[in-house]
């Protein structure tokens, strides 16, 4: 079991009154899971994903990551946990524009203290894995959207995470490119990494083995393929 969320809620206190983004969600993620989260805009998908990824803390309920209560961890320990075990893929890629594809992928590894030789070897493998070995020295501005997202996926996989979280990974891409990214994510999952994808895209959602549908901060239904 990677994540064990029991009755987690997230309430934002706003001037106009509290907003409950996620309401008592219980969810377990096991190694190799392939989960898609769907639901109308504002139903709390991103908030849930952020809690699963330990960048947002629940206001109630417990969330265990690998058996540890995340809310008890210090910020530094949580950063380390993300660095080692969680990968993030964003709708807007968030690659660092001043670094090349190679350097972007290398960044989390050097933060994790991997030796230089090992880093270079792994960067090469990862870029080959996402099909961008030839573009290693290109900057993000020289890449297409699909290519940028592939670099972002390679970066998310840098330290061999057990869980990969993606928020609308195809949101900024056209259908064909989106399909390519979806195929890539499938491969990632097949090699053992658990995957949680938030998406509006039915084609992407349908590839998952578990599809969660959210409404008003709650998981309304779960379909298992």
């Amino acid at each position: 079991m990677i994540v064990d969320a029991r009755g987690v809620s997230r309430v934002f206190s706003m001037p106009a009154g509290p907003v409950t983004a996620v309401r008592e969600v219980t969810l377990q993620i096991r190694d190799g899971d392939h989960i898609a989260v769907r639901g109308p805009s504002g139903c709390g998908k991103s908030t849930l994903l952020h809690m699963l990824g330990c960048v947002e803390t629940q206001t109630s309920g417990t969330l265990l990551f690998d058996g540890q209560d995340v809310s008890r961890l210090s910020d530094a320990r949580r950063s380390l946990l993300r660095l080692r075990h969680i990968g993030f893929v964003f709708q807007r890629f968030f690659l660092l524009p001043m670094l090349t594809a190679r350097e972007n992928v290398e960044l989390p590894m050097s933060e994790a203290g991997l030796p230089r030789a090992a880093r270079q070897q792994r960067v090469r493998e990862l870029l080959e894995y996402v099909g961008l070995a030839a573009r290693a020295d290109h900057r993000p501005s020289q890449l297409s959207g699909g290519e940028m997202q592939r670099v972002a996926i390679a970066r998310a996989l840098a330290n061999g995470p057990r869980l990969l979280l993606a928020d609308e990974p195809t949101g900024e891409l056209d259908e064909t490119t989106g399909a390519q990214i979806a195929a890539l994510l499938d491969r990632v999952n097949q090699s053992g990494t658990a995957l949680v994808i938030v998406t509006h895209d039915p084609a992407l959602a349908n590839r998952a083995s578990r599809v969660l549908t959210m409404r008003d901060g709650q998981i309304e239904s779960e379909q298992v393929a």
């Binding site: 950063s79 660095l83 993030f88 933060e111």
Partner: peptide, 11 residues
């Protein structure tokens, strides 16, 4: 924020 999500520490 993205770097922080990817595990970069606050320090």
């Amino acid at each position: 924020a993205a770097l922080r999500a990817l595990g970069f520490s606050r320090i």
